[in-house]
Design a protein around this nucleic acid. Structure first.
Lengths: 574, 574
DNA sequence: TTGTTGGCAATCCGCCGACAA
DNA sequence: TTGTCGGCGGATTGCCAACAA
């Protein structure tokens, strides 16, 4: 028998700059090392396909250990959507090689290569529609673009040539003019917008490569069914629409051509390719898989060590965990926090012993992750394994506990370990199951904020606003996401989620350090409303003497209709 | 084991009007009947792929009998390129069913369904570039479009709504104006051109369906490597370029987006899909194949009866044959004529006993088919099995015989029959090999045309021009292509090819009956030059009293530099 | 600091008859 | 009969400062 993939290697090349690829894909995407060991999940691959995948009655292992012996960073020609092509070779029993599989640990860890400086902006109406201009945020112009010569010509202009993911070059006129002065891209911009079929809400990304080259990437707004939650995480599942029907056409060109973009048609793979891959995988033949990082289904290839580590945790209901997310402009990161309600296989008939999504969960902010009821254990981090007792008895939104608190049971533990034999050759079983638990202690606590107009920083560490109990999560030092590298003595408001449930819009407040400064940060407010995403930032706010940044943030907070019944939770990051 | 194709049936539908599909594909394409028996040729499938296909060392039969149990007429979303998807099920020995496989015989036979009226025009510069208008040939306007009301408004206008292959509707303003009056498409036309990315040289096709609906199809000009031979036949092979390199982009939008069109990138299938199909075929599993009629490689699925019939012919060198072709605007059809030089397998190592392209040939007009050295026997029709003795000894272009005349040998005959066992259950072997020979007698003969300025019709039946020997081929009655249904008493000049070898351009003269008239015909002159194709027609020329049509044709003939050293061959069709 | 607006100039689009082949 | 050209009028594009948030 000949291998079906033997002829592919010479057909296509790793076709673009991998740094730009990563910038476009977002920092959430996990790309395994070449030659490392991963588990391939047919079940997850099927989730990544258009439509349902029918495997028939053949029994298929829920996960298949593979070696990664090919990684290609790709981008679709028409849409610029990035994807990765992995070549996987199923491992036989004696191929297991635990030595080379050093466990990096949690997700979202810093890559060895340092990230080039980049800036992402979501296009406004004016950027996308009118006059062919793009309003360049000052930060982007000053950190990404080559330095403008402000002295010789008035107004200062320069030509910027930016490479896209295909290596194609785009020319923009960058001018600093107007009253008050601002940075604009004029000539060349509308050409770019038209070619890329960008609309308001899409994002563009400028990146300055190590060699000084400017790159430009795009990320299309996800036209989610429910109208626009703009967060990205790796546990999501989009609703499946039927195959798109073509409605007979008209003159609406831009929208017509966007049909392929951002909807379920693209960013997904064909059902047959899944079946073909699974076919190879179960027969021990090498195969290729394609993964679209922005398709909102979790990776179906997972670093073996991460799976093993996750499976050694005694998952049980009541456990508190956090899962990383990032906002669509890849600027702000944070954690979703939730609680395990039960531990069970999602499809006992088709996949009777699969760990895929076997954590049934509820979220502290349930409206953002309405569709996500079950997650993969390797995607989350245990925060507390003490059952989450009802600690906000007076909050109207949580009048009663959301789930019954189940006691730890050995049944559950046994089940977890018997799900499949993925412990490798090492000492598997119940004995070894305890040693990898995360050493985090319970850090949830109740705080009270005073009622009115306090200076923002110190008072929000604890207290009550309008008599709402506010629970805070303290995360320490090295477990905080890399964007926040403040000294531990700096107190930052981070990842605050305040939502008004009745109006279905939310604000996320977050903070980020500026450059290498340990005393300056940027405060962000992101409104997630049904109309889309609007974000404002307060840059260069001084933290220690947080006079204006803090107060501005505080004003925003006041305006955001923060009333008793609207506050769910505030999180403080130390 | 689960079938890899089980999940495909519900993914896509037969997605467009099959008559429009056929009009776009051209009449050369062969679509087998549903449930009929075909031979699948892995070798031909590999020719249809991008790049080389490496089957490894596995032995693969050169042809695999299959039943056609699915036909889908498709069109690419972006390019409108038509293709067909066939689902084939390999037949086991006892599945052979010779009963249902009635032999229709030669290629190019009339389909049972009558063809709707259609008109194809190759876009001029003015059609494609300037002013957004399309100059409608009168014939098209009067036979395809709804009748214009010339009485009420001046100028007469109408709105034409035409469906494309996707079912999308396009609106055109059709106006009859100007001095002199002509038919034009104005509003809506440039929108169509831009959406479809048409350029001068591409063709558009208007079709009037049975229910009166207007359809519009497109056929992109083939940007052949050698610059523009505009003929289509089923034996061609495009040169393989390497994967297209992207040269860094610029503002040339239209050309950029056309990269995918008409070059080798499109109209071909992926190498892996070939391997996958072959894999299924050799293992007896159903599989799907995709064939692009306009990719210029022959069909790799061939009606079983056609293959069997072809293999029962005693092919030998010296045999004269003809092969059908049509011009790219699907208006004129004709035959290439050639001679078999040898009969041998093309790749004795990989495909030691394959009949694929096992006829090595030379063409009477070699410059048009430079790349085609070997053809499939089922694509040609024997004209004469008497070796083609050197009958034009004085023509300067053929100073010596092009090939040695080999004698009939039983070796060759034995070889032919031993190529593979495809004779079904019927009496195979040498005995049965003779009964299906075509009953054509040798009809090549030498004629002499007088030297100067003769009236065209009767004198060209025989004679010499400038002392050039002209050999003529007479084909009789029912073997002529359907477009020519003249009474046998009418003598028509048909398929005349006159080329000036030094200038690398050629003229094809052909004649076609007008409508149902048996006394009117259209004479066509097509210039095939390196700049592309230019064609002129003389319509409504009366044949019997061929006063103006004939003389016009004769003037063209005179102007075409028809000198001794330029004339290769003239063919007359009776 | 940056999103939106309206003014405006320059360009382009596309309809037209006049030719000519 | 139909391909190409130049004229032209109207629509669109896109640069800009003035505001406002």
């Amino acid at each position: 028998m000949f291998g079906a993939m033997d002829s592919m290697d010479r057909v296509s090349e790793i076709c673009l700059d991998s740094q730009l690829w990563h910038a476009c894909a977002g920092s959430m995407v996990q790309i395994p090392q070449l030659n490392s060991e991963v588990f391939y999940f047919p079940q997850g691959h099927a989730e990544h396909a258009i439509g349902k995948v029918d495997f028939g009655n053949t029994p298929i292992p829920p996960l298949i250990p593979c070696r990664v012996n090919g990684i290609k960073f790709m981008a679709e020609f028409d849409t610029d959507e990035v994807y990765v092509k992995l070549r996987l070779t199923p491992l036989r029993e004696n191929d297991f090689d635990l030595e080379d599989d050093y466990c990096i640990g949690i997700r979202g860890v810093v890559e060895s290569k340092e990230k080039p400086v980049s800036f992402t902006k979501t296009l406004t109406q004016s950027d996308a529609n009118n006059g062919g201009g793009f309003s360049v945020p000052r930060y982007c112009a000053e950190t990404i673009f080559p330095e403008l010569d402000y002295s010789t010509v008035e107004p200062p202009v320069q030509t910027i040539i930016a490479r896209d993911v295909h290596g194609q070059r785009w020319k923009f006129r960058h001018i600093y003019r107007g009253t008050p002065k601002r940075h604009l891209l004029t000539t060349g911009w509308s050409n770019f917008v038209n070619h890329k079929k960008l609309v308001a809400g899409d994002s563009v990304l400028f990146l300055r490569a190590e060699n000084g080259d400017i790159c430009v990437g795009i990320r299309r707004a996800k036209k989610g069914i429910g109208g626009g939650s703009e967060l990205s995480s790796s546990c999501w599942n989009t609703n499946q629409l039927g195959p798109l029907l073509f409605d007979g056409g008209n003159e609406n060109n831009k929208m017509l051509n966007r049909r392929k973009v951002g909807e379920n048609l693209m960013g997904k793979v064909a059902a047959e390719s899944v079946i073909e891959a699974v076919n190879c995988a179960v027969n021990g033949r090498p195969f290729e898989v394609v993964y679209y990082p922005r398709a909102n289904t979790p990776e179906f290839y997972v670093k073996a060590s991460a799976v093993r580590a996750a499976m050694q945790i005694q998952w049980c209901s009541g456990m508190r965990f956090k899962m990383p997310f990032e906002t669509e402009d890849s600027y702000r990161k944070g954690w979703f926090i939730g609680t395990v309600t039960s531990v069970q296989v999602v499809d006992p008939i088709r996949w009777p012993s699969s760990p895929w999504r076997f954590l049934q969960v509820v979220w502290d902010e349930p409206h953002l992750l309405q569709n996500v009821k079950c997650v993969n254990p390797w995607l989350v981090e245990v925060v507390s394994n003490i059952p989450n007792f009802h600690f906000s008895p007076f909050s109207p939104t949580s009048k009663k506990p959301r789930f019954p608190i189940s006691s730890f049971s050995n049944n559950l533990l046994n089940h977890t370990n018997s799900v499949c034999n993925i412990q490798g050759n090492s000492s598997a079983g119940i004995q070894g199951a305890r040693h990898a638990q995360y050493g985090l202690s319970r850090s949830n606590f109740l705080v009270n904020t005073p009622q009115h107009h306090r200076p923002p920083w110190d008072t929000y560490k604890s207290g009550t606003k309008n008599n709402v109990d506010i629970s805070c999560l303290l995360t320490v030092g090295n477990t905080a996401p890399e964007a926040i590298k403040l000294k531990s003595s700096h107190i930052l408001l981070f990842g605050q989620l305040i939502h008004t449930e009745q109006e279905h819009n939310s604000n996320i407040f977050s903070a980020e350090r500026n450059g290498n400064s340990s005393t300056e940060a940027t405060l962000h407010k992101t409104s997630i409303a049904s109309e889309g995403l609007a974000s404002t930032s307060l840059q260069n706010s001084h933290i220690e003497n947080s006079s204006d940044g803090g107060s501005q943030w505080y004003k925003d907070l006041q305006k955001s209709d923060l009333r008793t019944e609207n506050v769910n939770r505030l999180c403080l990051a130390l």
